[in-house]
Design a binder for these strands. Structure first.
Length: 422
RNA sequence: GGAGAGGUGGCUGAGCGGUCGAAAGCAGCGGUUUGCUAAACCGUCGUAGGGUCAAAAGCUCUACCGGGGGUUCGAAUCCCCCCCUCUCCGCCA
């Protein structure tokens, strides 16, 4: 989404940079659409001006007591013409805006150019995956054996890709939420918020999920209420349509919410266990910053998310996504991937992005510095995905006997040192 | 869910078919005055889109008075639907 004037002036540049993420813009079509739209607007406004002048004239004549019936009759025809033209304008304008709204963000120059995830670049690797002297199990075996995870009954209650946690399993999830919120609010300077879990379509447009990614979302039947796919949506939209006092920047918020995703198009991926669910819990970090330090803030936000893994003693690595693997709204994204012995691989547990002014333009979020108002930069990242952290703890801290040692940082929350079978 | 009252520019608030993009006050901005502060006075003060322009400024036009439809030559004002806020009742956690 771009300012029309900015977009028109920088069309070629934008198209060039978008090409690096595999998005081809049909420039001719856009230009043609824009010029048709503008000429329709001019025509319609021309007629409206005439109508306004005539109406004023009628008003004047009537005040003088003249008969204006025939003039009014003529104006009726003009009114119909205006209505027809307005319809054209609306259609063209909507098409043009929809096109613009469907253009993804432009990657930052520091982002590696690439085709897909294979071109992502590892930035750092922290911690060493543990050497097991037995064959480590996956959480989908460990969880049910410990009696803390029950996927069969969840499927009965709701369906596939839902989870039911029992006892210490449920408590582990809750402990992780509290632990993460406590670390971010006490040590990293975030303010906790608890937003609605349902949002309207305007909010989803603001953060970029709509109109393009409707099929990834759950919507309440017959209502403009949508289940949030991430806390990013309600939290970023807190300031939709507002101008923030520049002295308050950066605004740093964190929120726990469940997240709901249809996972359309991911059939066959991560089908076992709770790696990929229709509902999962997440603690999210969101920042509103001034444009000149948003990339510093992205580094800090990523470090804040990584800190959770460090405190839990979980090995991870951080990669920067290539242009071809980035999300629609992002200008730069780091993925943090945690080591999962059950998968024998690193798996995404957090995604930290700088959207620059992309969301701010769509959601109209500005800040005031002196007399000027300017769009803020918005950032967010998981801090962390709770379900996947649950998996990481169960798999990384498992013992030969199937029990799970609780990391020290979590013990005050969980109240036990070891999770054992019932 | 039922009954009632409302939603107007950054805020307060008038307007209830044409003279209204909208009175007035406050805040803001520029200036005069001033030892400084304060006060007073003068001016200025919405957003988006189109045209003009190399561009900006300026000028000009169009739209916007919660959102969407309608009536009318003409709507902030009249009608319909929806949303939100407040009060009372009901229900519920």
């Amino acid at each position: 989404m771009y300012d029309l004037a900015y977009f028109r002036a920088h069309l070629d540049e934008i198209a060039g940079r978008l090409a690096t993420r595999g998005n081809a813009l049909n420039l001719d079509h856009l230009r043609d659409l824009d010029s048709r739209r503008r000429s329709a607007i001019s025509q319609a406004e021309d007629l409206k001006r005439r109508r306004n002048q005539e109406s004023a004239e009628i008003a004047r004549l009537r005040r003088e007591g003249a008969d204006t019936a025939s003039r009014q009759q003529q104006m009726r025809a003009l009114g119909e013409e205006v209505a027809a033209l307005d319809k054209q304008v609306d259609a063209l304008d909507e098409e043009f805006r929809e096109r613009l709204a469907s253009i993804p963000n432009v990657p930052h120059e520091s982002v590696p150019v690439g085709k897909d995830a294979a071109d992502n670049v590892e930035i750092r690797r922290v911690g060493t995956p543990r050497q097991f002297d037995f064959a480590p199990k996956a959480h989908w075996d460990l969880g049910p054996e410990l009696g803390i995870l029950d996927l069969e009954r969840a499927a009965k209650i709701t369906g596939a890709r839902f989870a039911l946690y029992w006892g210490l399993g449920a408590r582990l999830e809750r402990s992780l939420i509290n632990f993460m919120l406590d670390v971010h609010t006490r040590h990293h300077g975030y303010l906790e918020v608890l937003p609605p879990f349902l949002v309207n379509s305007q909010s989803l447009f603001g953060t970029g999920q709509l109109p393009k990614f409707k099929e990834d979302l759950f919507q309440c039947a017959g209502q403009d209420f949508w289940l949030i796919p991430t806390a990013e949506v309600p939290v970023t939209n807190i300031y939709r349509g507002e101008t923030i006092d520049g002295d308050l920047l950066p605004v740093k918020l964190c929120a726990y919410t469940p997240c709901f995703r249809s996972e359309a198009g991911s059939y066959g991926r991560d089908v076992r266990g709770i790696i990929r669910q229709h509902q999962f819990q997440k603690v999210e970090l969101v920042k509103f910053t001034s444009p000149d330090n948003s990339y510093d803030e992205l580094e800090k936000l990523t470090a804040d998310a990584e800190d959770i893994l460090s405190r839990l003693g979980l090995p991870y690595r951080t990669v920067v996504l290539s242009t071809g693997d980035m999300g629609f709204s992002s200008a730069k994204t780091y993925d943090i991937e945690v080591w999962l012995p059950g998968q024998n691989d690193y798996k995404e547990i957090s995604s930290c992005s700088n959207f620059e002014s992309f969301q701010a333009r769509r959601a109209n979020i500005r800040f005031r510095s002196g007399k000027q108002t300017e769009y803020v930069h918005t950032l967010n990242g998981s801090g962390l995905a709770v379900g996947r952290t649950w998996v990481a703890i169960v798999e990384n801290y498992q013992q030969r006997d199937g029990s799970v040692v609780v990391p020290e940082a979590l013990q005050p929350y969980l109240g036990v040192e070891v999770i054992r079978g019932r």
